[in-house]
Write a protein that binds this DNA or RNA. Structure first.
Lengths: 117, 117
DNA sequence: CTAGTTTATATAAATAATTTATGTAAACCT
DNA sequence: AGGTTTACATAAATTATTTATATAAACTAG
């Protein structure tokens, strides 16, 4: 016997990590990578876990696309850390990606017979 | 200028295709691969598109896991086709995966500030 | 009657974003 | 001085897609 899974399985972040990062920066202001990961985990009530191997490549993708910019600063705990901030383009992308997330979950929910038949 | 995307982008199916297949078989009875794909597309109001290269590997995974079984029959259009049926184990898995989908979307929605704060 | 289209399955190769496993470095603690 | 914590980084492995082909049988047009 096993308790039903209270955590997301492998691949659960797929496609949603970038929009969650952008939203975290948009709502809570500039912060560094590990702090973003912690906020996402907390806000999901520890359902999601953001691995560092997923986090940093995602942050680099967002930076490369001009959706964030970042600068080296010193964290609360006195370590050098890259603080990211959402850009105007990032805000626009965030809005679109949130809409896309809603359309997507809606579509899957329809297929699963879970609402809005 | 470009119309906002009304369709899911690449990778949109990631992680949801199997549960959608199981649900389709559970609700609508035995049917063959291409028909499953069509039903999913229709029920999502053509938002989702199920590529054959995603469909058949997913069907094989489900079969290997004992969540469906299949037999060769003749389709409405007189072609040989493998008709799949959900098994009792498949029904149990479906329930769990639907619950997992709900927990997952809920977690992402919380992070995005979209409900159930 | 035969060439082209449609239906149906199948699979290899390419792509993309994860997970897992390490590594570096500086700050803090004992 | 040595061990732990914080923070970033990246390579390798994994997984599930997308894209591109291939096969084969049945229907359809000329």
């Amino acid at each position: 016997m096993r308790q039903p899974d209270e955590k997301a399985g492998p691949g659960a972040l797929y496609g949603t990590l970038e929009v969650m990062i952008l939203n975290t920066l948009n709502e809570q202001g500039p912060m560094h990578g590990l702090e973003i990961a912690r906020r996402i985990e907390e806000r999901s009530d520890a359902f999601l876990h953001v691995e560092e191997g997923a986090l940093y490549p995602a942050l680099h993708r967002l930076k490369r696309q001009g959706l964030t910019d970042g600068e080296w600063r010193i964290s609360q705990k006195r370590r050098r850390a890259r603080f990211y901030e959402i850009t105007p383009r990032g805000k626009k992308a965030l809005e679109e990606e949130v809409q896309q997330w809603l359309r997507h979950t809606n579509a899957v929910n329809k297929v699963l017979g879970l609402e809005e038949a």
